Simulated scan of single mutants.
Amino acid sequence: ALPGNAISQALPGNAISLALPGNPSFPGSAWERHYRLQFEIADTGCGIAADELETIFQPFVQTQSGKQAQEGTGLGLVISKKFVELMGGKITVSSQIGKGSTFNFEIKVNVCEAKNLDEKQFHRPGFTLEHNQENYRILIVDDLPENRRLLFELLSEFGFDIREASNGIEAIEVWESWQPHLIWMDLRMPVMDGYAATKEIRNRENNQSGTGKDSKATAIVALTAISSENERAIAIESGCDDYLIKPFRPNDIFEAMNKYIGVPFVDEEPISKQDSTKNEVLALTREDLAVLPDDWLTSFYQATIEGDFDLMLELIDQIPSDCQFLANTLTNLTQNFEFEALINLTDTHKGEK
Rank of each mutant, 00 (worst) to 15 (best):
K90R: 11
G351N: 12
L53C: 05
F26A: 04
E52I: 08
G239L: 02
I162D: 02
Y301T: 01
G126C: 07
L284R: 02
Q70I: 11
S177D: 15
N279I: 09
E338D: 10
S166T: 15
A283G: 04
N230L: 15
P27S: 06
I172G: 03
D288M: 06
L313N: 05
P180D: 07
N207P: 00
D252S: 14
F103P: 00
G74E: 09
P264D: 07
P293V: 08
W184V: 04
R163Q: 15
P12W: 04
S94K: 15
D142V: 04
L75K: 02
G351C: 06
L292M: 15
D294P: 00
K278C: 03
F60P: 02
Y195S: 02
E176I: 06
T346S: 11
F158C: 09
L53W: 03
D241L: 04
Q62V: 12
V174A: 10
E338C: 12
A171L: 08
I234R: 15
A10D: 06
T334I: 08
S215W: 08
C46N: 02
L311G: 02
A283C: 02
G4Y: 01
F248K: 02
I220G: 00
L292C: 07
Q318M: 13
R188N: 11
E306P: 01
R137D: 08
I79Q: 00
R163D: 08
S95V: 04
F60R: 14
N344Y: 04
A1M: 14
D241A: 03
Q96I: 11
T63M: 10
K259A: 10
P125T: 11
D186H: 05
R36I: 01
D310Q: 12
T346K: 00
A50R: 14
M87G: 02
E173I: 08
L292Y: 03
I91V: 15
G4I: 13
P24Q: 07
E153A: 08
V93W: 05
L292E: 05
F300V: 11
K353C: 10
M189K: 05
K115F: 07
Q96Y: 02
Q121D: 14
K273P: 00
D161F: 09
K273S: 10
F300K: 01
D295F: 12
N23S: 13
G262K: 12
C240L: 11
K108I: 09
H34K: 13
L223R: 00
E338S: 14
Q274R: 12
E157I: 09
N135L: 13
A303E: 00
A197L: 07
L315T: 01
L139K: 06
R163M: 11
H131M: 03
F309E: 03
L117A: 12
I316S: 02
P293D: 07
N23T: 11
P247K: 11
D186Y: 01
I201Y: 01
D308F: 04
D317M: 06
T298W: 03
L20Q: 10
V84F: 03
Y195I: 15
